[in-house]
């Protein structure tokens, strides 16, 4: 029951869309989320939550978010971290899952025409006050 509840809560937090997977299908290490989610799950009536439709689940989550904001934020932050660092999710956002280093990134395009606009700025003369 609590696994099903955890999955259902994660999917309500991060439902995905046509191309973005819901949390339960994003390849997250769900076992790692179980402990930080526990205080939140303990406040949810599992039967009612699982029986509710998407809108009903959101309402139930909003209610616990109000009654225990700390437990809610802790679970949410862990879920967001797991989800938005998952390779499948990063790929949908057009971002790579390899770390920033050593590869770095490119800032593409030619700055020449933009830098040429500085002639107008130069032509105005000094802007600073003596």
């Amino acid at each position: 029951m609590s696994d099903a509840l955890l999955m259902a809560v994660l999917d309500a937090l991060l439902p995905g869309d046509a191309t973005l997977p819901p949390a339960s299908r994003a390849g997250l290490d769900v076992a790692k989320l179980a402990a930080p989610a526990q205080p939140l799950l303990a406040r949810i009536d599992a039967r009612a939550f699982l029986a509710a439709d998407a809108a009903g689940r959101s309402d139930l989550l909003r209610a616990v978010a109000q009654s225990d904001p700390v437990a809610f934020r802790e679970c949410l932050d862990r879920a967001l971290a797991a989800y938005y660092q998952a390779p499948t999710v990063l790929a949908v956002f057009g971002w790579r899952s390899e770390p920033p280093m050593p590869q770095g990134h490119e800032l593409i395009g030619d700055d020449g025409p933009a830098l040429a606009l500085l002639d107008t700025v130069r032509d105005r003369g000094p802007l600073w006050r003596r």
Partner: peptide, 30 residues
Amino acid sequence: GLAGDPAYPPKKSRRMKPLPLGRLGRRAAA
């Protein structure tokens, strides 16, 4: 950086060329 900024008294030439503006910088410049 780039020397010649009229917001300041003249500064010595900067040792290295400025960081690229990229797409974001070029949009802002426009």
